[in-house]
Computed example of a mutant assay.
Amino acid sequence: MASVPNGVRASSLDARWITTRRGSAEGDCVEVAPLTDGGIAVRNSRDPDGPALVYTRSEVRAFLAGAKDGEFDHLL
């Protein structure tokens, strides 16, 4: 199966988008969706028709591990 390219219009994906329960009432959320090719798409909830970034499961796993370890805490 062909992989989904980065920058594809998020609303064109046949995907079930998941939003964090920790998002704000103003819609400041990042949404993610599993894709049929095994990838994981990410979009800005305030721009559901905007571009989606697509990552492999391995890339998302590495990012989540870094976030859990506090590697990105300095950004906030």
Rank of each mutant, 00 (worst) to 15 (best):
G39I: 11
E31N: 02
A67M: 15
G23N: 07
C29K: 04
R57C: 07
V30C: 06
Y55W: 12
A25H: 14
A67F: 15
I40F: 08
R9T: 11
P5C: 09
D73W: 02
T56I: 14
G27S: 11
R43H: 12
R21W: 00
T19E: 04
T36F: 02
I18T: 14
P48T: 09
H74A: 03
H74V: 01
R43M: 14
S58E: 15
G23K: 08
G27I: 13
E31F: 04
C29D: 05
C29M: 07
L75W: 08
W17Q: 03
R43N: 10
H74D: 04
P51H: 04
I18F: 05
G66E: 12
R46M: 14
T19K: 09
K68D: 13
G7A: 11
L53N: 11
G50Q: 05
L13F: 00
L75H: 04
L64S: 11
A15S: 06
A33N: 04
F72D: 01
A25C: 07
D28H: 12
M1R: 10
N6S: 12
W17Y: 06
G50N: 10
D37Y: 15
D49T: 13
D14R: 11
P34I: 00
L64V: 15
V42M: 11
P34C: 00
I40S: 07
V30L: 11
D73E: 07
L13D: 00
G38R: 10
V32A: 02
D49N: 13
E71P: 03
T56N: 10
D69W: 02
A10M: 01
E59M: 14
L75F: 05
E71R: 13
G70I: 00
V4G: 01
R43D: 09
G66Q: 13
D49G: 11
M1D: 03
I18N: 06
G50I: 05
K68P: 11
S58G: 15
D73M: 02
G50W: 09
F63S: 03
G38A: 07
V60N: 03
P48D: 06
S12Y: 01
V30P: 02
R21C: 01
S12M: 02
